[in-house]
């Protein structure tokens, strides 16, 4: 996750670097530290350092880190020749390294040679069966090939050991959602909420899944999680506001006739609607009419 202040700093540095103001190395370090994906910039500016032997030698041992970074960026940009050169240089320096082996595997992946990449990763795993990154690469490779069931299987196997890895849980949750396996996805999102209880996005996603599952109980829970999202984001999340409205409507339909809980919930619903209206007026005034129409429809139906 990139914090707001870090992002400001990153954008400032990127601007400076783009306009030739120096600080290229600092920019690249920050990109690496925050793990953001700005491959085109990294490729352009990283190469400018690597091609200048004076600048390159000034880095000392960090030179190889830069080679790795540029190689990954080049793979991302499909500049396979550049990536190949970088990896070759790294291999000359570290002939036995597993980390370089991983880069080679990624290059094979980028070329679309799935079988070869698979073979490369498997041989790396033989050396060190607990290499998390390579396990993840194998899973993402399965996903890239469209083999979702293999990806799910791989993720389950991975999570059996590394069960505290919340990024893997999120990936699994998203795959399950894409396959409409909402119960499984709900479990993954619960796991995410447990590991990061203050991240509103997990609450929101969990609420979405529960809302989609439907049923009175799930809808009630979903509404609570939308409320939690509103609380955590300070009411700035449009999706959560809509979620509250939709949940209330759906609940109202389901519990028609025995409206005993209607009273207490109606307030939150109307508040959310008002907040939505205000937000639209402020940020997209031309769409206010659409909003009022939608909300009106919801109430009628």
């Amino acid at each position: 996750m990139v914090g707001a202040s870090e992002e400001v700093e990153l954008n400032r540095l990127e601007n400076q670097v783009d306009n030739g103001g120096g600080g290229v190395w600092e920019y690249l370090c920050l990109v690496r530290k925050l793990k953001v994906r700005r491959s085109d910039k990294v490729l352009k500016h990283g190469l400018s350092i690597l091609n200048d032997s004076k600048k390159r030698s000034k880095l000392g041992g960090e030179e190889w880190t830069l080679y790795e970074q540029v190689a990954v960026a080049a793979i991302d940009c499909q500049c396979l020749d550049v990536a190949k050169d970088c990896i070759k240089a790294l291999q000359k320096q570290f002939p036995e390294s597993r980390r370089v082996g991983r880069l080679e595997g990624m290059l094979l992946e980028a070329k679309g040679l799935w079988a070869d990449a698979e073979k490369a990763y498997s041989s790396l795993l033989e050396d060190n069966p607990l290499d998390q990154v390579i396990h993840k690469r194998k899973i993402s490779m399965a996903k890239a090939q469209g083999n979702v069931s293999a990806a799910i299987e791989g993720l389950n196997k991975y999570l059996d050991i590394y069960m505290a890895d919340h990024d893997a849980w999120r990936e699994l949750a998203e795959i399950y959602v894409s396959l409409q396996l909402y119960r499984q996805a709900a479990f993954c999102y619960e796991e995410l909420i447990l590991s990061q209880p203050t991240v509103p996005l997990h609450h929101l996603a969990y609420a979405d899944v529960l809302y989609t599952l439907g049923g009175v109980e799930n809808l009630q829970i979903a509404k609570k999680y939308y409320a939690a999202t509103i609380d955590l984001t300070g009411g700035k999340n449009t999706r959560a506001l809509y979620g509250i409205c939709l949940c209330t409507i759906a609940l109202g339909q389901l519990t028609k006739g025995r409206n005993k809980e209607d009273k207490e919930s109606s307030e939150l619903h109307s508040l959310a609607a008002t907040a939505l209206g205000k937000d639209y007026k402020y940020r997209a005034p031309d769409k206010v009419s659409l909003l009022t129409a939608t909300l009106g429809n919801l109430k009628l139906s």
């Binding site: 509404k223 609570k224 409320a227 609380d231 300070g234 307030e267 939150l268």
Partner: peptide, 13 residues
């Protein structure tokens, strides 16, 4: 959280 969300929204409005 539902009550808290209500409070937040009230403040926002």
């Amino acid at each position: 959280f539902e009550q808290r969300a209500e409070a937040v929204l009230r403040k926002l409005i």
